[in-house]
Design a protein around this nucleic acid. Structure first.
Lengths: 359, 359
DNA sequence: AGCGTCAGGGCAATCGTTTTCCTTCCGTTG
DNA sequence: CAACGGAAGGAAAACGATTGCCCTGACGCT
């Protein structure tokens, strides 16, 4: 282990001293070779390296040194075979890998990597055939568990029933309430957005969002309306459903302006929509946030920072969702399965588009 | 059991025919169980399922049926152990997984998945320690090969020397010319951009790009200048190095306008820069593309489509790079290693920002 | 001195597949 | 009719790590 650290350093800082880098591993050494070098039996070597059995400290050390010298790394296949565990999980993204999957993936990979578990990545691309193919592949590889993710939060049918390994859904959820799902709390997010606008004194608040058939759009819209009415307010305009794009945001700005509704804030269903709205409003002479304050959703860096002014937005903490899903999966693998949907709160990231004092 | 099967099928394909779905796998069957059910020995069953050995067709069929009935999927660990191959490759992204890694990943996963090879994903996050940790992990898992990617195209020191498995670098390249690298041909991309601007009749062309210490920035800038001078032209202004952001694009627009240089086109080092430039130019009263044509780089959908007008851009075909890298890796695994850098050409995607007739 | 105990470590089975021999049984041929 | 050859399939040895069991000394106690 010490040597390991030093090796890294050698590679990193001083090219030229290649003595003990990983480069010395050119054909995997077996534990028998290590044992032979240390003058013990393979079984003993195994115990020495895994801290099991009753061994003299000196023997243990000798084996460890031999292992290091040979650059020994235990053959995972052999170990899995005998342990019945692979320290491996599969991650299936049902839609394609994209903007939403990545933070999930990073979070999951983070939590799993810390537990010495590797991740098989599978991209099912919205194709049920591919999905089942990957499921089968993963099961053949004896993964210890599976994380299922997707780009929509809507509940989906379970990927399989009676599977031999635990499954956790991240971001999307399973329609089976007995399955374990970790999702963002979108209602809470919408509530925070509206409350923030209320807190800075806005009262004529509109909502522009994605397609009405999109689960996230309706959930967020409902929560927004509820929050408004809890404050004794009506929305400043009907909810505008459209698509998740800047173009729609621009178009929606036109609609809002043309209806003559006196709007002093818009909560947008996505940062892209908010950005489009911001542009169009300002082209029409409205000042953001003085005349109209804006809150987006997703906290997507390139959108919130690229927009002028920078966008206040709701961060769903996707990385946290990925991490939590991974942790729940590990727990399930260790025999402590959890059931049901768990909704993680997001947080509001305030920026200039709702700054009370815009200077 | 039956009920389970039907549920899966109902969801998946054809309600009613639940015979052979994955639902039946609830505790992995071994080949011995299959063999017993088919009334043969395990060895024979193996031959039957893998199309090897000399077996009566009828026997083969019997075994296959037994396998299906039990939902048999060969234990990959056992198979790897004996074959010495795992049909698994590792993919290490040296910087974080991000906008550039994803298409690479998708491309690679595509090519590998088709070959029944699974991918271990590792995110080294620009941390050499993590990198070496993952390398070690992958080697312990006996991956058949490794793909190394990153978010910068600059050459990097090899991830290891004398490794027991082949390595292919994708997007980034290795400083060791003997290693196999697949990279975008950025010079070619820059050339295409400038030639496109020349083709639509622009002669006073400027170049705004990222940091001077960034490899991509200098490579593209050099190629752009060479292309101009090959056409007998000088750049309309000194190359403006800055950062890869919209903010810099806006700032650069100010610089170009204030120097009074008569610029009729700008080739930008990234779509973000181009977008910032487009905004600022138009706020200053210039019309894109009539007064100033713009070409970006990366063909990043949200930027090229979100910008107004939509941006002409250079697409580096990252997915193709990922796919090619994976194919080369598979070839190397099969004993046909390739060496050296292979630069893949990109293509120019024309959009409104360079439309000859902007209506 | 004799017995019990325990530390230290070797042996061998085990995980599930594949593969290399073998064996057996027929059919064909000299 | 004996011998040979090929087809069909079984037996068992790998692959590499782990682990329970057993063996061997050495030590201590009576």
């Amino acid at each position: 282990m010490r040597a390991c650290q030093e090796e890294v350093t050698v590679w990193l800082l001083e090219p030229g001293n290649g003595e003990e880098t990983l480069g010395t591993i050119d054909r995997a050494a077996t534990i028998s070779e290590v044992a032979a070098l240390a003058g013990v039996s393979p079984g003993t070597a195994s115990k020495a390296l895994n801290g099991r059995g009753a061994l003299r400290p000196e023997t243990r050390r000798r084996v460890q040194e031999a292992a290091e010298q040979l650059g020994f790394v235990a053959n995972a296949a052999a170990r899995s075979l005998q342990a019945g565990r692979t320290y491996t999980v599969g991650m299936i993204t049902t839609d394609s890998i994209g903007r939403f999957s990545i933070p999930l993936l990073i979070g999951a990979e983070d939590a799993l990597g810390a537990g010495q578990v590797s991740v098989f990545l599978c991209d099912a691309r919205d194709d049920p055939i591919r999905e089942q193919y990957y499921l089968r592949t993963l099961l053949g590889r004896q993964v210890d568990g599976i994380i299922v993710t997707g780009r929509r939060t809507q509940a989906r049918p379970p990927i399989g029933v009676g599977l031999p390994v635990p499954v956790v859904y991240a971001f999307i959820s399973s329609t089976d309430p007995d399955d374990c799902s970790v999702v963002p709390d979108e209602q809470d997010g919408a509530r925070r957005a509206v409350e923030h606008l209320l807190a800075i004194g806005r009262r004529r608040i509109a909502h522009v969002t994605g397609p009405e058939h999109h689960h996230s759009a309706t959930v967020r819209a409902d929560a927004a309306l509820r929050t408004l009415s809890a404050a004794g307010l009506e929305p400043a305009a009907n909810v505008l459903f459209g698509e998740w794009s800047e173009a729609w945001g621009r178009q929606a700005a036109g609609i809002l302006l043309s209806t003559g509704a006196e709007v002093d804030a818009v909560f947008c269903g996505s940062d892209q929509i908010a950005r489009g709205l911001a542009e169009a409003l300002q082209e029409a002479g409205r000042v953001v946030p003085r005349d109209v304050a804006l809150v987006g959703f997703d906290n997507w860096d390139v959108m919130v920072d690229g927009s002028r002014p920078a966008l206040t937005s709701i961060d769903m903490d996707l990385e946290g969702i990925g991490r939590t899903a991974a942790e729940l999966l590990l727990a399930a693998i260790n025999g402590n399965p959890e059931h049901g949907r768990r909704a993680l709160p997001g947080r509001l990231i305030p920026r200039a588009s709702t700054a009370v004092n815009p200077f």
